[in-house]
Simulated scan of single mutants.
Amino acid sequence: MNNTLNITISANELLKAYTLGYFPMAESRNDKNLVFIDPECRALIPIEKFHVSKSLFRLVNKRPFTITMNQAFSSVIHKCATINRDDTWINLEIEKLFITLNEMRYAHSIECWDNRKLVGGIYGLAIGGVFFAESMFSSVPNGSKVALLNLVARLWKTGFKILDVQFLNDHLIQFGAYEVEKVSFKKDLKSVVNIKNTFYSSPSKDEDFFEILSTFLQAKIDKS
């Protein structure tokens, strides 16, 4: 059973909560309160062993989208809360907090563009050597998959150790997601939160993303 804590929190306090293994959710989009979750099991995606299907591999090599980072953070989190959803755990308070954290260079978004239209994205929080992926959206086929793959490649390039995705589901299992117990997760979390990361300062133009992604995919081929 999840342990929950219902409180109001600042952006800096939210950062601290994440380093202790808690993350916020709301009961609904219109709920003004936050509930802090501390689940018994945590879902992770392996960075180096991220599973890339043959179809996704072929797709990304065609470069179907232009990729950017932090060019439309507020739009990404808003679309994560509203695109293809009847309701969501992302309320306006979470949106506001994460926009502040983006301005503080802790929260980040990866965006997929098609002819200058935002069609896919993912956002999350980078602290030390761990990236807490919060949510992703797609308004066209594969938009969120391409965003996730580019995120993973960037995490691999910049030396991140943990990619947290909170809860396991069938969509994430296809990428190699698995569960670990809370005690194990928090032990590993404590060992990496103080690592200096270069996620924000690393080059982030479309050509840079393609180069990083190509290197990541080639490394996977060389190891197979």
Rank of each mutant, 00 (worst) to 15 (best):
N2R: 06
F131W: 08
F65Y: 15
S224L: 13
T82M: 06
K220C: 05
D31C: 14
P141M: 06
W156H: 14
V35C: 11
K79Y: 13
A107S: 13
L15F: 02
Q218P: 00
Q218N: 13
N142T: 05
L213V: 12
A177Q: 07
I162D: 04
E93L: 13
K117Q: 14
P64K: 11
V140C: 02
K62C: 05
E27H: 10
S75Y: 08
N61Y: 07
V192A: 08
G159F: 01
I45E: 07
V165S: 03
T66G: 03
F36D: 03
D38C: 11
Q71H: 14
D86A: 13
A72E: 03
K117V: 13
E103Y: 08
N115E: 14
V183G: 00
T198I: 08
F73W: 11
V152S: 00
G120F: 00
V146L: 03
P39C: 09
M69F: 00
F65S: 10
L217T: 02
A133H: 05
F65N: 11
N70K: 09
R29P: 00
N30L: 12
H78C: 09
A147C: 08
T8P: 01
W89Y: 13
Y200S: 10
T198S: 13
E27S: 12
A147L: 06
N84H: 15
T19G: 01
L101W: 11
E103M: 10
I90C: 08
K62P: 01
V152H: 00
P141Q: 12
A147D: 02
V119G: 04
Y106F: 15
A81N: 09
F132C: 11
T82Q: 12
A72Y: 07
N3I: 14
L97V: 11
L217A: 04
L14E: 07
G143F: 09
Y106C: 02
A133E: 12
F160D: 00
K190V: 05
A177W: 12
T8W: 04
